[in-house]
Design a protein around this nucleic acid. Structure first.
Lengths: 353, 353
DNA sequence: CTGAAAGCGCTAACAA
DNA sequence: TTGTTAGCGCTTTCAG
């Protein structure tokens, strides 16, 4: 048996299709009696509107596009995978579906635009992480709301969900200072990424606040990319320095892990000889040996907030460009302080933003 | 400026809309000249068909529904998250989008059906993991292809992508026997799950093959659920046994990890006093201490194969019910054999199916 | 408050 | 090989 259409409902309820439409979408005015009569028939027939018909008539898709750089997705990179799952959750709560697409590192042609944009198959777009600004320009031309996650563009403002990177860097450096370290190095790759730049900036600020000279030779931001291997490379260079730093603050956990590998490989002790702190709190960080001190970023929450913000823009036609900074949390573990208790939760500290 | 429609293209190209439709969808016969003329206009105008219009006219959505039990998704459970990502990958290659939905453990009402089914917004369905058979019945009534992942129903056949659980269990038990263990226990929860039942069955078969009596008191399948905590509970009971087993094969890594926690907590040594092997190779297994010997399941591949199979069914109207068993791989690590080299890859073994 | 009617943009017979 | 013509099922003015 075929599925009932809106016409069937109208006929059974003895009213017009437009009335049924109004009732099932709960807009406009309908008398209580009519509404109930229609609802009853809807129940009986098991009627449910077909998405593509609604879409064609109303020019909405009920979908949200989630765009990620391919290298962030394909290696099943733990950070953005979490953000994506957070978005999935929130979308389901708001009755949207999430369509996923990836872009190349350097966006080249209109050919590379996600299919869902060309097909008009999304009502709004979330872009997670750093992508080519030219790409964002192209996306903008489709005239649908956009929310950025963990990324900003210089010349233009977008609604965006950001990490409180500076506050996090302050917490990390404060902690290392509290552990008695005076010579704290910074390791970062792809420093053009606004988030990583902010972490470096926060590091600088905090040292200055404590009247400690920022030493350029202890700031290693040569690596093009913030992956584990590159953390190891940077650390190798830092170990050449005389005197060498007694602590390292890495721009993210991946690089911090690379640093740790390099330090251990050189027969040095952690945190005895060198203390290490990272940023992100990816899953691996709490499972490795020694467990990594880091700043916990609430990844699912980033995705969730982005969806909430986007849905508000879609539904209310909000034109206000919201910017939210999500606080981070310092997780002190063995890589930074010998004396840390097993219960890491005792020493958590929230950023205050 | 408004986006061009198929009519605009037809007008510019001096032909009818149906010709344009045929060209852009690459079906039916069109003269080379006409085709090229149309393509040229398509390029110039930057035309791209709107998904919902195509959907309404052709009764296809271009989407695949992926259904997961809520407790498998919400805790961001690592196993199914991977399977889902694998499906995402494959879908993108085949020009489909994946819509995600979850079902409660016990499906109750038509109300609980995924919205994308009611809205006719998917062309096929993937169901991952164990769900209520009544739920599958309901899904079937929508008359679209279904592929099951890691699950079977007794009374009916479905296309399905399965794990070669028996072969895996054989490898595990063989390995433990080779390490000199004669008294090998089995720990499992939710043994009604076909996959877990097969692992137990494989364990039994292999012991019998070696003329070792299968001892019921060393088979602990009381726990309702195969989570870490329950692994610990089961292990606690096994440690009461006299004599106690010298090795444990757990139905999955989560329970194996619980076993390890319990063993260490009792001041025993791994693998000295008791060896442990798991199944799944979740990420945590290679990061913990001691690293867990387990059977690697190719989770992304499960998702990918499901999509490929499903898309074939959707496109070719294949009615053949394919069943694929994906091989697993034994990863020997410290939890089972003291003498294992750091390079675990040297001791991998594939199941032969 | 309710109904009639005009599409939304595309596909798929069916003719020509 | 190409064109004509019905819809697909719903939303949305616009009258009444």
């Amino acid at each position: 048996m075929k599925r009932p259409t809106i016409k069937d409902v109208a006929r059974e309820a003895g009213c017009s299709v437009s009335t049924v439409s109004i009732v099932v979408n709960d807009r406009g005015y309908v008398s209580k009696e009519t509404r109930e009569r229609v609802m009853k028939v809807v129940k009986e027939l098991g009627y449910h509107a077909t998405r593509s018909a609604r879409g064609l008539a109303s020019k909405t898709s009920g979908n949200i596009g989630f765009i990620l750089r391919d290298d962030h997705f394909s290696q099943a990179e733990p950070f953005y995978t979490r953000v994506f799952l957070g978005a999935e959750f929130a979308a389901r709560d708001r009755n949207f579906y999430v369509l996923l697409a990836t872009v190349g590192r350097q966006f080249s042609e209109r050919k590379d635009l996600p299919r869902f944009l060309l097909e008009r198959n999304v009502d709004g777009i979330i872009i997670a992480g750093k992508v080519s600004p030219r790409f964002i320009d192209q996306v903008e031309r489709f005239g649908i709301p956009i929310v950025l996650i963990d990324f900003e563009v210089r010349r233009k403002r977008y609604a965006s969900i950001l990490i409180d990177n500076k506050a996090g860097a302050h917490l990390a450096v404060d902690h290392l200072l509290a552990c008695g370290h005076k010579s704290i190095a910074f390791v970062g790759g792809d420093i053009l990424h606004p988030s990583l730049a902010e972490r470096l900036e926060g590091y600088r600020e905090k040292l200055q606040e404590h009247h400690i000279t920022v030493q350029d030779r202890w700031i290693d931001i040569q690596e093009p990319d913030s992956r584990i291997a590159n953390g190891a490379h940077a650390m190798a260079r830092l170990l050449q320095q005389h005197p060498r730093p007694s602590a390292v603050f890495a721009a993210n956990d991946a690089m911090a892990i690379g640093c740790i590998q390099q330090i251990l490989q050189n027969g040095l002790n952690i945190p005895g000889d060198i203390a290490v702190a990272g940023f992100d709190d990816i899953e691996m960080s709490s499972l490795m040996q020694p467990r990594l001190t880091t700043l916990r970023v609430f990844k699912e929450e980033l995705g969730r907030q982005a969806v909430e913000t986007l849905v508000d823009m879609i539904k209310n036609g909000d034109t206000m460009l919201v910017t939210k900074h999500l606080p981070v949390e310092l997780k002190v573990r063995e890589s930074s302080c010998a004396k840390v208790s097993a219960d890491e939760h005792d020493v958590s500290q929230h950023s205050t933003t």
